[in-house]
């Protein structure tokens, strides 16, 4: 007979694991990936593959040769970072090498310098994305023209995102709300289709990986705030629904603000976090230098997450 195992109670465990959570997030990102491939063609697939492979590779190299700790690439967290990074860049050929730099920054600076998974204060994919946006402003805002589903030709004619166009004073009248919802608009490859993102988010909610608090408060705040602005002056400010479906609000609210590591734990804290993200996003979009503010908003709120955690405690049973 084997030796008896001894431990303190409890002696059973739910079948949850970090690995399962990460791979489920990856599953949830698949609809958005498929839409990106459908609209942007083979470029989207290649950029995604390069981003994922380089993220995993950098994590492996850093763990193996610099930190000299057991490698944890199988837990799927680097894959999530890679996919999210790819989703935040335009699907253009030049991205195929730029995204490698982004992966190095995301994994190397965004994650491993703090000690790896679970210890990073900022969402690694957003760190990579913001680094690229500042370092390669031209390439990062060169959007491929969306040319019907499954485009067969890849010219470098560039279009504008609805947000950029609006910033310059002209929202193309040809962009309808329905297009924006389905993703038939310009933009970073993962953020175009609100529908695909919502499908993934619904899956995550069902699997209890995310709760509704952050996405709803984020999107709700953005909607209400932009609606107020729009009601004040419909000419200067964007339609609130259009605001939600263009740019990265959906992707950010459902996948990046909800990142477990960098968001608050208590439900009340998550609501504060979501509201903060929503407010900052609309402020940056309307009065900031960039047409898009989701990444900055989330990173800023990431930085106050420890404070929110300190302040928002769960309701004690005994009080």
């Amino acid at each position: 007979m084997n030796l008896l195992n001894i431990s303190g109670s409890p002696h059973v465990h739910s079948d949850e694991s970090t690995k399962k959570i990460m791979w489920r997030v990856n599953m949830a990102l698949i609809p958005a990936l498929l839409v990106a491939i459908a609209y942007f063609g083979i470029n989207a697939l290649l950029v995604s593959i390069i981003a994922v492979v380089s993220c995993v590779l950098f994590q492996w190299l850093i763990e193996k040769f610099i930190l000299k700790v057991p490698t944890t690439i199988c837990d799927g967290s680097a894959v999530v970072t890679g996919l999210l990074l790819a989703f935040n860049v335009p699907a253009t050929p030049s991205m195929m090498w730029i995204v490698i730099i982004g992966a190095l920054v995301a994994i190397g600076i965004g994650k491993m310098t703090f000690g790896g998974l679970g210890k990073n204060p900022f969402n690694p994919a957003l760190v990579g994305r913001v680094f690229l946006l500042i370092s390669f402003p031209v390439q990062m805002t060169t959007w491929p023209v969306v040319d019907g589903i499954f485009p067969m030709h890849f010219d470098l004619a560039t279009g504008a995102t609805p947000l950029a166009a609006f910033k310059e004073g002209s929202l193309g009248s040809d962009v309808t709300l329905w297009d924006a919802f389905l993703g038939h608009i310009g933009g970073s490859m993962g953020e175009v289709s609100a529908l695909a993102i919502l499908i993934g988010a619904a899956y995550l909610c069902w699997k209890k990986i995310i709760s509704w608090h952050i996405p709803v408060s984020f999107i709700g705040t953005a909607f209400i705030f932009s609606a107020i602005l729009w009601l004040v002056n419909p000419d200067q400010y964007m339609d609130p629904l259009m605001t939600l479906f263009t740019g990265g609000i959906m992707l950010g609210a459902c996948f990046m603000a909800t990142d477990m590591v960098t968001s608050p734990m208590a439900k009340s804290g998550q609501l504060i976090f979501g509201v903060g993200c929503g407010l900052l996003t609309i402020i940056i979009r309307n009065w900031g230098a960039y047409p898009e503010g989701v990444s900055f908003a989330i990173l800023l709120m990431n930085s106050v997450t420890p404070l929110i955690n300190r302040w928002c405690k769960p309701a004690r049973f005994a009080e």
Binding site: N2, L3, L4, N5, I6, S7, G8
Partner: peptide
């Protein structure tokens, strides 16, 4: 010559309270 396999928190202070 182990008689059992301790599977809990790696802490003597804690193991001492378990068995």
């Amino acid at each position: 010559n182990r008689r059992s396999n301790y599977d809990g928190l790696r802490s003597c202070a804690f193991e001492n309270t378990v068995y």
